[in-house]
Amino acid sequence: MGSFVLSKIFPSDLNKIPPFIENIAKKVLSLTGSDNDAFKVKLVLEEAMTNAMRHGNLLNPKLKVFVKISVGKKKIMLQIRDQGKGFNFHKVPDPTNKKRAQQPCGRGIFLMRKFMDEVTFSGKGNKLRLIKKININPA
């Protein structure tokens, strides 16, 4: 098994997320042998797809979320796009500062930034690209 590209279109239904990300995590684990990489990719995919469905598409089942996953020899790229209005991605407050640390929400984007090597929003904020460096098992 080696590199692959996978594109999938989802309705805005949160229940579609767990089986999909579980499957991707398994692929990443078998390619890299890294439990940690598989865990982080799974988590950021859940965060990104949940945001796209919830904040972007406002859970309107008619609106779609487009996901593209490209795995190369040295990196994995996740692209997530929704059909919502976007948001000001330059102004996401830091959830670790004192005032926010006890708030229930607002941690998804921060986790993406910590667990990935590159996090780039574009367009109105409805397009997200996440990149993580990986080492594919030679075996």
Binding site: F39, L43, E46, Q102, P104, G108
Partner: peptide, 16 residues
């Protein structure tokens, strides 16, 4: 074996 930000939110709301 897994927790995402939604899980953290649930723990925080229970804590509050």
């Amino acid at each position: 074996n897994y927790i995402s930000s939604m899980g953290l939110s649930a723990i925080f709301r229970i804590k509050l």
